[in-house]
Design a binder for these strands. Structure first.
Lengths: 341, 341
DNA sequence: CACTTTTGTTCAAACGTTTGCACAAAATCG
DNA sequence: CGATTTTGTGCAAACGTTTGAACAAAAGTG
């Protein structure tokens, strides 16, 4: 079968423990034996059995990524490939592997996570975009298992997390529209159980308030991260007796939905309605017109989350619990023309 | 620490082996003991240590996914999130976990794969979109390791693979343009070391030939899967003394690049140039105008690959080595108007 | 040169499972 | 009712590592 440490030991005329120590660069191995063993190691093409290694060392050199449950829906979003790209790149660079799980139902999800965590399959996990009250967080804390949250938890503010300042970002996005002269600004939110929805809404409202503009509840609609919800939001807004002149959306895909609907109906962006999206996924610059978008450094978030987690599992001191990735508004045509009234 | 089988055994007053047998539903366990053990199992919240289990059973209930090396580049494409979505969904449904690796350099990549395969970390792997001569395939074969290729290998035609008929798909796409009256059709290809590039080119050429149209080498340009390459291709074509009236591109993202460039320069699609993309990623229907695209069932490919691999590692009989996922042309506005000359 | 320290190596236990074999008790059989 | 089969359970080895303890040999010390 596969070559084991024992095979190598025999052939090199030493004990298995010596081989193991050569492998881990133990200081008390004579250069001569080390050389000899290394030679045999190469000759036989030895590779360690990770399972055996993990069993005794209790570490796996693997991090887990828990995808949000309704993965079918959210995965559509470019957001995910971007985050994963950041995570996998950083992990690979550090010699870690990445394990992904998801579940279709809450039960399935918890099952999968349990398998990972209690089965000691990974050294730590990354939780992707938490819901308002995420049972997974309690689960992790309960088991004292290292994890990093991408997002934020109100319930547990003191956990390791990587996030951007969604409140401020939405504030800035809204501010931008106000600076363009808009006074009637709507907001297309995400599912209310996602923290990000609330945060961005808050920033939006604050910006209005600070500008002395009264918020209108009917100009805030709830959607998800699919373009259909943008389409629906568009129909809704355009049918109102009094319409907003600009919209902030929770995600670029949603902004796309809005844009598409408007174009179909013969409206022009930004003339009839200005748009600012969120996340700056690659398509926002591809659309006609290109959509202004709040870039939240998605790749960077993934990369940093992975980095933070790996540091944590290695027991390195964490300078700060919560890392905020800076955001940056990318202004494009969809919000460039001044409002007319 | 964590609850082991021994803890359970003690508490239940039986031997560890009995607990193990209860866990695996061994037929020769009395209902009474089984019940008792199960009770303790639940009470103590036992979960098997997968490492230990794998060590003796030599299976991991995990499949590996090897991402193509220049992941940074290709990952941008929605293609990947779609495939991964298919894989992870199917795997989770079967109780398997998914492990992802990649490497920045050829050496790093092989290292990562070796870690997975020789470290007995996964039961089998999925190879994503192979290059013309992929050393990974030889590697797998050499080690007799179960794997499924997404794509095709000329060198090793007899391996498990999931693919679509790229030749026929490109043939059909080109045929569609011909049916619209086009006689001057260009092709934007992908990197020449990817099999898919050659296949689609072949179909394109065959369609021209069958329609009695002579192919023009200068109307075939090489790109990658980024929109920039579409942009470049566009500039190139539009500067030619004699321009094509329609284009088939290797991917929708490339088609986007073309479309964007054309729009910038004031050209109209499909009037000035008709477009047919490939892969039908979600943005092709979002663009203005929406782009006709050859849908190759990406999600289905991932799903099927995972299914095939899991069957293979379980030792089930494989009805066929090579599974072809059907394709379907989605005709949209970008290719709908008849050519004028 | 007798003593202590350092160096290099091996032994054996441990990690948490699975599983072939052994064996006692219970059930079946003629 | 003794002999045989079946049923239920435990023992112990094995999977491939790591690692503390033990120890012999070499080196250093006064």
């Amino acid at each position: 079968m596969a070559i084991t440490i024992v095979d190598v030991a025999k052939k090199a005329g030493v004990s298995p423990s010596t081989v193991s120590r050569v492998l881990s660069n133990h200081p008390r191995i004579s250069p001569a034996t080390a050389a000899k063993v290394r030679e045999v190691l190469k000759e036989l093409g030895y590779h360690p059995n990770i399972m055996a290694k993990s069993l005794v060392s209790k570490t796996t050199n693997t991090i887990g990524l828990i995808l949000p449950r309704p993965a079918e829906e959210l995965f559509l979003n470019l957001f995910f490939s971007e985050v994963i790209r950041g995570i996998v790149t950083q992990a690979a660079r550090t010699g870690y592997d990445l394990m992904m799980t998801t579940g279709t139902t809450e039960r399935e999800e918890l099952e999968a996570v349990t398998r990972l965590v209690k089965g000691r399959r990974v050294d730590g996990v990354i939780l992707l975009y938490s819901r308002q009250s995420d049972p997974l967080i309690s689960f992790m804390l309960e088991h004292g298992f290292p994890f990093v949250l991408i997002g934020r938890s109100d319930e547990f503010p003191d956990i390791l997390s990587v996030d951007n300042d969604n409140v401020q970002a939405a504030y800035d996005a809204t501010r931008h529209l106000i600076a363009q002269g808009h006074k009637r600004i709507g907001f297309v939110s995400g599912p209310p159980n996602l923290i990000v929805s609330g945060d961005r809404m808050k920033g939006y409202l604050q910006a209005l308030k600070d500008a002395g503009i009264e918020a209108r509840p009917e100009w805030i609609v709830e959607g998800d991260f699919l373009q259909e919800s943008g389409y629906r939001a568009m129909s809704f807004f355009m049918c109102l007796p009094e319409r907003p002149t600009a919209l902030v959306t929770i995600d670029d895909v949603v902004a796309f939905g809005v844009l598409r609907g408007l174009t179909e109906l013969g409206y022009k962006v930004p003339d009839d309605l200005s748009l600012v999206g969120f996340n700056n996924i690659s398509l926002s610059e591809l659309s006609t017109p290109p959509i202004s978008s709040m870039d939240i450094g998605i790749y960077q978030i993934g990369y940093t989350a992975s980095q933070t987690l790996i540091r944590a599992v290695k027991g390195e001191a964490m300078p700060q619990k919560r890392v905020i990735i800076p955001h940056r508004l990318i202004v494009r045509e969809s919000s460039l023309i001044q409002a007319k009234d």
